[in-house]
Write a protein that binds this DNA or RNA. Structure first.
Lengths: 197, 197, 197, 197
DNA sequence: TCATAATCGAGACGGTACGTCGCGTCTTGGG
DNA sequence: CCCAAGACGCGACGTACCGTCTCGATTATGA
């Protein structure tokens, strides 16, 4: 039998790992997700193809990892808490809108979304590693608001986040409308009205 | 100069067109969007590859067109209007939830979403040809509700639709939570509260 | 049954015929025999592909015909007859050598030879329509020499021509040596010695 | 710049090389030179197309190589030397005539000639690798005859070979006459008369 | 301390699909 | 009925990458 070779992570070359992830990120920005090939990543990284196949199961996984790498060290995300929920959320939402408007984020973030839609395993990893911590921070802020009586005490916080963010994400993904600060504000106002105490 | 040989649509073979679209639809269902190749479509359709390249710019466009074809004749979409907005919306939303739960729709609809995210041109076509008419029907129902005083008269109807549907779509796309009738109801209630007169 | 359609030559368009042959000749010179396509000939000639397929059985036949066309009117080829066979033959052979050295003849004549080697039907046509008349003129000169006692009376004239020309043709076809006036002379001398009375 | 990826011959797979050449030879015999495709060779050889393109520049080169392969080990070609030049040459020429009459040789040898006429590089390789050694053996026999006073001491041996063989080759290539033992004899006699001491 | 085993770069391999070219046939509309 | 135009099914082209598979040449322990 062809023994599912298990490489020994202890011997893994850190230098190669970084080179691969850096090359992956650069290529996604330059040519777009669909046109990135493992061959190109290996070549750009100065790495043998086998080294990639040894440590990652798919192109999507490599690129996903390259995003993960970016967000390392961003631990302890924390939302502003001035006591004024509406103001705080508008600050955050306006920042999100601005981020999406940045063309530098366009290619990689769209690539990330493609992977998530296409691959359930990556979707799981995304929720756990990337979205999870951020969502938790947001929910923490919402809980603080619940304690302050600015939000229905029995509101389903996951649902609140969906109502708040999903319209924005969809509009960006589908390019179905402009992403403006006013739009950010409107989403906050609507959400707060929907989940008012 | 880029030549851009323009085929003469008058001579286009209707038989080939149908065969290609049918084959495309079948293959997406059978093997999934990513694994469908133009070669396979041509072969299945009993058509030369050139015939596909002559009339469609990309695999995505073929598959997109195959969806379009499905929804032809569905003109005059019309939402129920019993006078009770909440009940009507819940009916519609529950139906939507059920549709998304149907494994037969899984592959093609996910494929459609991948195309839209990846290709602006297809996103435009989607909004105009597929989403547009349906959205218009929904907005018609909402306008009726506005006249009946069940919805804020100044509500931005596009926004209402986003708040109503985007959470559902996102949950499905990201597989980030269960799609239940209760979830459908919850979205309707929240939306109505947010946009109450 | 699919009736081997027999076109009516009476209705044939002379204008198209010329255009095709001219285009064929031009293309062989420009891109070489192998790279000439019927599609290109038709396009260059401003003629429908069917018109070519209607009147010629193959690409080779078209190109062959284009050579035939060139040699029309060259009727009554006649070799010089000064009474001195050796001098006359040297004149002719030197002219032949010079012709082969002309780069303008290179592509078409090589193409012609390729056709002849590859296609027995064209080889027959070649012998009958192109080589035949010329060979007959040569043999006429040789017969005159036989009468003058400069050549063995029982010499097989076809064989004489082969000994005279085949080495030259082969050297040119295989590029296996230089084609010089001295070479032409040498072939004449050898042949005359071989077939001396 | 033209990149010109150079594969590393050290890593070349001998098994693939043989399989390709064997397949090429078989296909030429079966369907004829013109109808052999690289795709068919690769498929028959159980080899990726890229493996062919990596090591050979053209279909002609593959097929040519397949002939070369056949003649390996045929080193030390040597003509009979009974002391009687005329008898020896007739033996050899009759054998050559018989060879050309063999339908098994028809397709491949004609293919070889087409390549040589069409491609100067292959013509060079032909002269060096295939014709060269054989010609050298023939010239060796002729030198022996010169020493024995059966041939002019100052005869240009390349020319002798041309006069001897070119008529035969041409007759076969152009199918312009029958190849009989008598024809072989006649060529020998003529040549000996032409180059008599 | 050194052999020894895994990882590394490189890249050849059998394949699949790409997007293009040309084949020979067929259809359309004009003269 | 011929003609120009050109769409059609088909087959092959030469290229790009896929994922697997050797190759030496470094490492980096653990005997």
């Amino acid at each position: 039998m062809s023994q599912a070779r298990k490489p020994n992570p202890a011997r893994r070359s850190e230098r190669s790992r970084r080179a691969v992830l850096d090359a992956a990120r650069a290529l996604v920005s330059e040519v777009g997700y669909a046109k990135v090939s493992i061959e190109a990543i290996a070549s750009r990284a100065g790495v043998g193809k086998q080294t990639i196949y040894r440590w990652w199961p798919s192109k999507g996984a490599v690129i996903f990892d390259s995003f993960l790498e970016l967000s390392r060290g961003e631990d302890g995300v924390r939302l502003p808490d001035t006591g004024d929920l509406e103001a705080d959320l508008k600050t955050v939402m306006r920042a999100t809108v601005a981020e999406f408007a940045d063309p530098v984020f366009e290619a990689p973030v769209r690539a990330l979304n493609l992977e998530i839609v296409a691959d359930p395993a990556l979707a799981d990893a995304y929720r756990e590693k990337l979205a999870g911590p951020v969502d938790e921070a947001k929910k923490e802020r919402l809980r603080s608001a619940q304690r302050a009586g600015q939000l229905a005490a029995d509101a389903d916080l996951d649902l609140v986040l969906e109502v708040l963010y999903a319209p924005l994400h969809q509009r960006w993904l589908h390019r179905s409308g402009p992403l403006t600060p006013e739009y950010a504000d409107a989403l906050v106002e609507i959400t707060l009205r929907a989940f008012a105490p």
